[in-house]
Design a protein around this nucleic acid. Structure first.
Lengths: 340, 340
DNA sequence: TCGCATCGCTAATCCGATTTAGCAAAGGGA
DNA sequence: TCCCTTTGCTAAATCGGATTAGCGATGCGA
């Protein structure tokens, strides 16, 4: 059925030249090494007719480079978030003619080691170590060219990191309320009021709180949650409503906001007429909720793109070691905030 | 920094044998080719000490196999669904010591061609052609060993397909209502009553309707939707409620059900006391809705696993050409159906 | 003691490219 | 006319393994 591949030898024979000459022409070094225009054209025409494409495995063996990078994450499937990150990386890779291996460690160090080995054995040019939720991770030894995506190295490792600008996101959320005239009656759902009140090891919680504080917005109260799921948001908001009449809520993520909506509806409160709500992440549900949720988006797609870009920069020239790249988190203005 | 890799030559030298002998031992053919137990142990010990791992690129060049498969889909990031499919494929691949290339075509044939070439140039052992929503696709020529995931070949191609059992899912949804005593007042949201009423080119819509019919469940009416998004579900249900008092709704997917919940709430109807709701897909929101949505799950994880398994079976021995593997869609019993 | 099979290992080739070193022919200067 | 340089191309080595063919030593039977 499928005829065998056209090799360089086939091409050389068809063009009536040596393999060396054919290779020189195909790699574009013909000019430099004085191949005549006539021969060059002959080779190019033959390549076109035969549909010659160099065997990447062979090239990889010879040159030591494979035009392939590895994308290793703790989990890929947990949510749409992961998908967008991969999508961004995928497109940036395609623009550079590079393929992506993906692998999932499930947080198991042994799996991670095996995966990295499998990739290194295949001579990947670099590795993206990704985490689904921003956190610090321990970087394996001898990993070669690599970048951290949505993660920071625990002991400093010299590897560059790409993370969302959570502090800036906190500022954006708070300013959004301030500009709508919400100077009081603003409550937090999911974390706070102290920086340590929130899910353990959550970089996002702490940094979002820091950003909110920086604006000087007065926080009237808060309900922390150990998990950021709708159920916790519902419970926390219900508990809050038992004692207070908030005018605005900052939910630490969209799933909490979903729960908050339910609690507010139960209490007969309308969003945004009685209570304004802002949130973080821009999860798909944010635009399905009624009213549509105003939220500060995690730029997963951009993070993925940036990771590939930084990886290539790093492979290319001398890059500043251990640099942290922060990607802005844009505000999605929708219908859950009303000026007062 | 990173010391160069240990090669077979290094290993052979360390063990004091020829490269041939080292290779034979490492590939497990030592016994067969009469390598003494003593020498074998020496090689194995040296390999362990040096941390020798064969260069997969070199092996690939020599043997023509790369222990790598390509996963090509139209979109990876649209939803969690894609992620679960990849996750299933990833795990099945890992169990077989195989790596996964991923690529996204965005429905662009030129991109698809480029991607397949890039993978073939890297000597992938096989390819999984995946679609995010079940549909028919045109299979490129000369694709080599491949399977279709969540898709059927338009002109029959001899390639095996792995698809969810949508007809069975339709039956499950209908039976679930019948067993709960809902013999009348059952309406459809999203498609029907005729098989052709639904989103164009949607295999799922037609097959789910077929399955529902097979049970003999009497459908009191239906509202078709061109898109299966929450907004359409809201509008369709609102329109339905203007003229009818349903006792149960079969929503053709969970996003429609989300919209239906909103319309029912607006009309002051309670789920499941006034109206029972069943749906399809088991999207993450299904378990976030209140009450939690009873739905027939798309087995994305299983589909991904199965694709890898079928691909390997096909590469191994003679498999029946063009076989269609249907994966059962399990019912997730939750809180949106009440017996009457 | 000779011939032959068996044992235990290795030299050489191959996979498909890139790259180095060098060869034959043409051109140029003295 | 001779020597040297430049031009235009190719032979051969290389990457790191797998595989085929074969070689020397030993054991055995006749």
């Amino acid at each position: 059925m499928s005829r065998p591949r056209v090799t360089l030898a086939d091409l050389a024979q068809a063009a009536g030249v040596s393999r060396t000459t054919a290779s020189l022409v195909m790699t574009g070094r013909g000019r430099e090494l004085r191949i005549s225009h006539d021969v060059e054209q002959r080779v190019l025409r033959a390549a076109d007719e035969l549909g010659y494409r160099p065997n990447a495995v062979s090239v990889g063996l010879r040159t030591g480079t494979s035009r392939t990078i590895g994308f290793v994450s703790d989990t890929v499937a947990t949510s749409r978030l992961a998908g967008d990150m991969i999508k961004g990386a995928l497109e940036a890779a395609r623009e550079r003619g590079v393929m992506l291996f993906i692998g999932e460690t499930e947080g198991d160090p042994a799996l991670e080691r095996g995966l990295l080995h499998a990739m290194q054995d295949r001579q990947v040019d670099g590795i993206i170590l990704a985490a689904m939720y921003t956190r610090t991770i321990k970087v394996p030894k001898d990993i070669g060219p690599a970048v951290l995506l949505n993660a920071l190295p625990k002991p400093a490792s010299g590897l560059p990191s790409i993370v969302p600008d959570e502090v800036g996101a906190g500022r954006s959320a708070a300013r959004l309320l301030l500009e709508a005239g919400h100077h009081e009656g603003v409550y937090l759902i999911g974390a706070g009021p102290r920086l340590r009140d929130g899910p353990a090891a959550s970089v996002a919680a702490v940094e979002r709180l820091v950003g909110i504080r920086e604006t000087g917005l007065k926080i009237a109260g808060a309900r922390a949650c150990a998990e950021w799921q709708p159920e916790e948001g519902l419970a926390a908001t219900r508990s809050l409503l038992a004692d207070h009449r908030p005018r605005a809520l900052i939910c630490l993520n969209d799933r909490l906001a979903l729960g908050a909506y339910q609690a507010l509806a139960d209490a007969g409160l309308s969003v945004p007429d009685d209570v304004s709500v802002v949130s973080f992440d821009d999860h798909p549900i944010a635009s399905w909720m009624r009213p549509k949720l105003t939220t500060v988006a995690l730029p997963h797609y951009e993070l993925g793109r940036k990771a590939v870009q930084v990886l290539f920069d790093q492979m290319g020239e001398e890059a500043e070691p251990g640099q942290v790249h922060r990607v802005a988190m844009p505000v999605r203005h929708r219908d859950s905030v009303k000026p007062r």
